[in-house]
């Protein structure tokens, strides 16, 4: 139990004080109560903001903690989403079809990341090349999926659909219980909390310390006896699984997926969420992913064509004024303020 508490409350993420955990509990409670006060439409929108958080957390783990920037993590989002659509669609009517789709989607995204990551890390590709290679992978996937229009591009009874995408993807269900509307919202919330706490424990563990050491100095870490390639590979595959989880939740939420989900614009988003929140904090990236999705979704749904320009502007402003991320720097200032207030007054 002590180990569990130590891993949860370790110093690898912001927020360790009693006040923080009370505030955290209050926010979770508000999220739990939200569906009782909001319309089904708004709850569905919040589900969308939540379902993107695992993708952001994976990016924080990979880039912020391990120092490897992937500009194409939406590829794994897309692989999981399409795979779920194919499996669950072909098992339509089977109450365990969506569950098989989830397993297949996660395994597919991890397999693609595993093969790609193996060649990248075991070939000791230089760090600055990795963002380009990952972007190329996702753009290739987008191009491939875009040309899959036509009846010949089907897997079983499911059409890939070209640029129009795959439609009619089944809801997630376990046995006879279908997750839609409010239940889907609670599923997203539960998974986000599980991912956050799981990753918080990971980054506070010895494994987490070693991946931070790899970020700081690969050679020094290797000369302390660690196979850094294996650890980078594990983190890469884990972050791809988190992207895959977001992809699964996305297709279960909207019942469709298009190649644009693995395109350039979408590829930039997790990088922006991470940079704006602060690369070195899981919580900061979770908050940033939620907030930026809310801003983008709200602006887009009101017909504002410049939603992405505004998000881009926010990124530039963050780089200039908050180089370590808005949430991280605000949290640091709040922490200093609290410490100053708690400190006894100086004697004259």
């Amino acid at each position: 139990m002590r180990t569990f508490v130590g891993l949860i409350s370790g110093g690898a993420d912001i927020g360790r004080t009693r006040l923080f955990w009370i505030s955290f509990g209050v926010v979770v409670l508000l999220f739990l109560l939200y569906p009782t006060q909001a319309s089904a439409f708004r709850v569905s929108n919040v589900s969308f903001y939540l379902l993107n958080i695992p993708l952001g957390l994976g990016m924080a783990l990979l880039w912020g903690y391990c120092g490897v920037l992937s500009f194409g993590h939406v590829a794994y989002f897309g692989v999981a989403g399409y795979t779920y659509g194919v499996i669950a669609g072909n098992m339509s009517g089977n109450p365990f079809g969506p569950l098989a789709g989830v397993a297949g989607g996660l395994l597919a995204s991890m397999f693609v990341a595993g093969v790609f990551g193996y060649f990248v890390f075991y070939a000791r590709v230089q760090k600055w090349i990795i963002p380009i290679l990952t972007l190329v992978l996702t753009l290739l996937l987008e191009t491939f999926l875009g040309q899959t229009a036509g009846y010949q591009w089907r897997v079983g009874s499911v059409l890939l659909g070209g640029y129009n995408g795959m439609t009619g993807i089944p809801w997630f269900q376990v046995g006879g219980f279908v997750f839609e509307g409010y239940s889907f919202y609670y599923l997203c919330l539960l998974l986000v909390l599980a991912c956050y706490f799981g990753l918080r424990m990971l980054v506070n563990s010895n494994f987490g310390q070693v991946i931070v050491a790899i970020r700081e100095d690969e050679l020094r870490t290797e000369l302390l006896g660690y196979d850094i390639r294996a650890r980078q590979w594990v983190v890469f595959v884990l972050s791809a699984a988190l992207a895959g989880l977001s992809g699964l939740l996305y297709v279960q939420w909207g019942n469709y997926i298009t190649p644009s989900q693995v395109g350039l614009l979408q590829a930039a988003l997790p990088v922006i969420w991470t940079a704006v929140g602060g690369t070195t904090s899981l919580l900061a990236v979770a908050i940033s992913a939620f907030a930026l999705n809310w801003i983008t979704f709200t602006l887009s749904s009101q017909g504002n064509q410049y939603a992405m320009v505004i998000i881009g502007g926010l990124l530039v402003a963050t780089m200039v004024f908050f180089p370590r991320g808005i949430v991280v720097m605000v949290a640091e200032r709040l922490g200093r303020l609290m410490t100053r207030r708690a400190a006894p007054p100086r004697q004259p």
């Binding site: 010895n206 310390q209 070693v210 931070v212 050491a213 700081e216 100095d217 050679l219 020094r220 870490t221 302390l224 006896g225």
Partner: peptide, 15 residues
Amino acid sequence: RAFHALSVRENLAIP
């Protein structure tokens, strides 16, 4: 090449 961003305790814990 000690890890400057980490504490003394963490530097000694990593190996």
